[in-house]
Protein backbone atom coordinates (compact mmCIF):
# COMPACT_ATOMS: atom_id res chain seq x y z
CA UNK A 1 0.00 0.00 0.00
CA UNK A 2 1.58 3.28 -0.97
CA UNK A 3 0.55 6.85 -1.52
CA UNK A 4 1.48 6.95 -5.21
CA UNK A 5 -0.71 3.94 -5.99
CA UNK A 6 -3.61 5.46 -4.05
CA UNK A 7 -3.31 8.82 -5.80
CA UNK A 8 -3.09 7.21 -9.19
CA UNK A 9 -6.20 5.13 -8.51
CA UNK A 10 -7.94 8.34 -7.49
CA UNK A 11 -6.94 10.39 -10.54
CA UNK A 12 -7.54 7.60 -13.01
CA UNK A 13 -10.92 6.48 -11.72
CA UNK A 14 -12.33 9.94 -11.08
CA UNK A 15 -11.01 11.76 -14.16
CA UNK A 16 -8.85 10.02 -16.72
CA UNK A 17 -10.65 6.67 -16.98
CA UNK A 18 -13.91 8.12 -15.76
CA UNK A 19 -16.38 5.28 -15.52
CA UNK A 20 -18.86 7.00 -17.82
CA UNK A 21 -16.85 9.25 -20.09
CA UNK A 22 -14.01 6.87 -20.80
CA UNK A 23 -15.04 3.34 -19.85
CA UNK A 24 -18.67 3.83 -20.93
CA UNK A 25 -20.13 1.89 -18.02
CA UNK A 26 -23.56 2.88 -16.81
CA UNK A 27 -24.34 5.00 -19.85
CA UNK A 28 -28.04 4.13 -19.96
CA UNK A 29 -28.80 5.48 -16.52
CA UNK A 30 -26.42 8.38 -17.11
CA UNK A 31 -28.28 9.69 -20.13
CA UNK A 32 -31.71 8.81 -18.77
CA UNK A 33 -31.45 10.47 -15.36
CA UNK A 34 -29.12 13.42 -16.01
CA UNK A 35 -31.85 15.78 -17.16
CA UNK A 36 -32.21 17.39 -13.73
CA UNK A 37 -29.72 17.87 -10.95
CA UNK A 38 -31.69 16.54 -7.98
CA UNK A 39 -32.58 13.04 -9.20
CA UNK A 40 -29.16 12.86 -10.83
CA UNK A 41 -27.48 13.42 -7.49
CA UNK A 42 -29.73 10.96 -5.69
CA UNK A 43 -29.07 8.36 -8.34
CA UNK A 44 -25.31 8.90 -8.14
CA UNK A 45 -25.35 8.48 -4.39
CA UNK A 46 -27.25 5.23 -4.77
CA UNK A 47 -24.82 4.00 -7.42
CA UNK A 48 -21.85 5.04 -5.30
CA UNK A 49 -23.23 3.11 -2.35
CA UNK A 50 -23.91 -0.01 -4.40
CA UNK A 51 -20.54 0.09 -6.17
CA UNK A 52 -18.60 0.51 -2.94
CA UNK A 53 -20.39 -2.21 -1.01
CA UNK A 54 -20.46 -4.65 -3.90
CA UNK A 55 -16.71 -4.15 -4.45
CA UNK A 56 -16.17 -5.50 -0.95
CA UNK A 57 -18.70 -8.30 -1.27
CA UNK A 58 -17.39 -9.54 -4.61
CA UNK A 59 -13.80 -9.31 -3.39
CA UNK A 60 -14.61 -11.47 -0.37
CA UNK A 61 -16.52 -13.90 -2.57
CA UNK A 62 -13.64 -14.17 -5.02
CA UNK A 63 -10.94 -14.45 -2.40
CA UNK A 64 -12.57 -16.93 -0.02
CA UNK A 65 -14.85 -18.98 -2.26
CA UNK A 66 -13.95 -18.88 -5.93
CA UNK A 67 -10.15 -18.97 -5.64
CA UNK A 68 -9.79 -21.71 -2.97
CA UNK A 69 -12.26 -24.01 -4.72
CA UNK A 70 -10.90 -23.34 -8.20
CA UNK A 71 -14.17 -21.92 -9.41
CA UNK A 72 -12.88 -18.69 -10.96
CA UNK A 73 -14.67 -19.49 -14.22
CA UNK A 74 -17.91 -18.86 -12.32
CA UNK A 75 -16.80 -15.26 -11.73
CA UNK A 76 -19.29 -13.54 -14.02
CA UNK A 77 -22.32 -15.54 -13.01
CA UNK A 78 -21.64 -15.47 -9.28
CA UNK A 79 -20.82 -11.75 -9.22
CA UNK A 80 -23.98 -10.77 -11.04
CA UNK A 81 -26.11 -12.96 -8.76
CA UNK A 82 -24.62 -11.49 -5.61
CA UNK A 83 -24.97 -7.94 -6.94
CA UNK A 84 -28.54 -8.56 -8.09
CA UNK A 85 -29.67 -9.94 -4.76
CA UNK A 86 -27.90 -7.19 -2.87
CA UNK A 87 -29.59 -4.50 -4.98
CA UNK A 88 -32.92 -6.23 -4.52
CA UNK A 89 -32.36 -5.96 -0.80
CA UNK A 90 -31.44 -2.27 -1.03
CA UNK A 91 -34.51 -1.64 -3.16
CA UNK A 92 -36.78 -3.19 -0.56
CA UNK A 93 -35.10 -1.20 2.17
CA UNK A 94 -35.52 2.09 0.29
CA UNK A 95 -39.15 1.37 -0.47
CA UNK A 96 -39.75 0.80 3.20
CA UNK A 97 -37.72 3.71 4.57
CA UNK A 98 -38.32 6.48 2.06
CA UNK A 99 -41.28 6.01 -0.30
CA UNK A 100 -40.76 9.50 -1.73
CA UNK A 101 -37.24 8.63 -2.87
CA UNK A 102 -38.58 5.42 -4.29
CA UNK A 103 -41.08 7.37 -6.37
CA UNK A 104 -38.33 9.60 -7.79
CA UNK A 105 -36.38 6.69 -9.20
CA UNK A 106 -39.34 4.78 -10.56
CA UNK A 107 -38.03 2.12 -12.83
CA UNK A 108 -34.38 3.04 -12.49
CA UNK A 109 -33.62 1.51 -9.12
CA UNK A 110 -33.91 -2.08 -10.37
CA UNK A 111 -31.76 -0.97 -13.27
CA UNK A 112 -28.81 -0.49 -10.92
CA UNK A 113 -28.63 -4.29 -11.01
CA UNK A 114 -27.92 -4.17 -14.70
CA UNK A 115 -25.86 -1.00 -14.36
CA UNK A 116 -22.68 -2.12 -16.04
CA UNK A 117 -20.66 0.11 -13.73
CA UNK A 118 -21.31 -2.12 -10.72
CA UNK A 119 -20.34 -5.40 -12.36
CA UNK A 120 -17.62 -3.62 -14.32
CA UNK A 121 -15.85 -2.40 -11.19
CA UNK A 122 -16.13 -5.82 -9.55
CA UNK A 123 -14.50 -7.48 -12.56
CA UNK A 124 -11.94 -4.71 -12.85
CA UNK A 125 -10.94 -5.08 -9.19
CA UNK A 126 -10.35 -8.79 -9.66
CA UNK A 127 -8.40 -8.16 -12.87
CA UNK A 128 -6.24 -5.48 -11.31
CA UNK A 129 -5.64 -6.61 -7.75
CA UNK A 130 -5.27 -10.37 -8.16
CA UNK A 131 -2.14 -11.68 -9.84
CA UNK A 132 -2.27 -15.33 -10.93
CA UNK A 133 -5.20 -15.95 -8.66
CA UNK A 134 -3.46 -14.48 -5.61
CA UNK A 135 -4.45 -11.27 -3.90
CA UNK A 136 -1.71 -8.64 -4.00
CA UNK A 137 -0.85 -6.93 -0.69
CA UNK A 138 -3.51 -4.38 0.20
CA UNK A 139 -5.83 -5.87 -2.37
CA UNK A 140 -9.03 -5.49 -0.36
CA UNK A 141 -8.24 -1.88 0.51
CA UNK A 142 -7.46 -1.03 -3.12
CA UNK A 143 -10.72 -2.65 -4.25
CA UNK A 144 -12.70 -0.68 -1.70
CA UNK A 145 -10.91 2.54 -2.61
CA UNK A 146 -11.36 1.97 -6.33
CA UNK A 147 -15.06 1.36 -5.69
CA UNK A 148 -15.39 4.69 -3.89
CA UNK A 149 -13.42 6.58 -6.55
CA UNK A 150 -15.38 5.11 -9.44
CA UNK A 151 -18.52 6.17 -7.59
CA UNK A 152 -17.08 9.67 -7.22
CA UNK A 153 -16.30 9.76 -10.93
CA UNK A 154 -19.85 8.70 -11.71
CA UNK A 155 -21.19 11.41 -9.40
CA UNK A 156 -18.95 14.07 -10.94
CA UNK A 157 -20.03 13.23 -14.49
CA UNK A 158 -23.69 13.10 -13.43
CA UNK A 159 -23.51 16.42 -11.58
CA UNK A 160 -21.84 18.28 -14.45
CA UNK A 161 -24.05 16.77 -17.12
CA UNK A 162 -27.27 17.45 -15.24
CA UNK A 163 -26.28 21.07 -14.63
CA UNK A 164 -25.47 21.56 -18.29
CA UNK A 165 -28.66 19.89 -19.47
CA UNK A 166 -30.75 22.02 -17.15
CA UNK A 167 -29.19 25.08 -18.73
CA UNK A 168 -29.76 23.73 -22.23
CA UNK A 169 -33.48 23.57 -21.47
CA UNK A 170 -33.46 27.37 -21.62
CA UNK A 171 -31.88 27.74 -25.05
CA UNK A 172 -32.80 26.92 -28.60
CA UNK A 173 -30.87 23.80 -29.53
CA UNK A 174 -31.28 22.72 -33.17
CA UNK A 175 -34.17 20.26 -33.15
CA UNK A 176 -32.40 17.26 -34.59
CA UNK A 177 -29.63 17.20 -31.97
CA UNK A 178 -31.90 17.89 -29.02
CA UNK A 179 -31.68 15.59 -25.98
CA UNK A 180 -29.58 12.52 -26.64
CA UNK A 181 -27.26 13.63 -29.48
CA UNK A 182 -26.22 16.88 -27.78
CA UNK A 183 -25.72 15.03 -24.49
CA UNK A 184 -23.31 12.68 -26.25
CA UNK A 185 -21.41 15.58 -27.76
CA UNK A 186 -21.15 17.33 -24.39
CA UNK A 187 -19.94 14.08 -22.83
CA UNK A 188 -17.35 13.88 -25.57
CA UNK A 189 -16.00 17.36 -24.88
CA UNK A 190 -15.98 16.62 -21.14
CA UNK A 191 -14.05 13.42 -21.78
CA UNK A 192 -11.55 15.32 -23.90
CA UNK A 193 -10.96 17.89 -21.19
CA UNK A 194 -10.51 15.21 -18.53
CA UNK A 195 -7.68 13.90 -20.70
CA UNK A 196 -5.68 16.81 -19.30
CA UNK A 197 -5.06 14.52 -16.33
CA UNK A 198 -3.18 11.93 -18.36
CA UNK A 199 0.27 10.71 -17.43
CA UNK A 200 0.19 11.64 -13.76
CA UNK A 201 3.37 11.02 -11.80
CA UNK A 202 3.79 11.67 -8.11
Amino acid sequence: MNIAQILSIFISSVFLYNVILSRFLGLCSFFAISKETKPALAMSLAVMFVITTSSIITWLLYRFLLVPFNLTYLRTISFILVIASFVQFVEMAVRKISPSMYRVFGIYLPLITVNCAVLGVAVLNVDMFFVDGKAIPGSLFYSLFQGICVGLGYTLAMLLMSGIRERLELVQIPRSVKDLPIAFIIASIMGLSFMGFSGFKF
Binding site: L21, S22, A183, F184, A187, L192
Partner: peptide
Protein backbone atom coordinates in the same frame (compact mmCIF):
# COMPACT_ATOMS: atom_id res chain seq x y z
CA UNK B 1 -10.05 6.04 -31.61
CA UNK B 2 -10.13 7.75 -28.22
CA UNK B 3 -13.17 7.29 -25.96
CA UNK B 4 -14.18 10.91 -26.56
CA UNK B 5 -14.25 10.20 -30.29
CA UNK B 6 -16.68 7.35 -29.72
CA UNK B 7 -19.08 9.66 -27.92
CA UNK B 8 -18.72 12.23 -30.68
CA UNK B 9 -19.39 9.74 -33.48
CA UNK B 10 -22.48 8.32 -31.77
CA UNK B 11 -23.78 11.80 -30.97
CA UNK B 12 -23.41 12.92 -34.57
Amino acid sequence: ILPAGALLVIGL
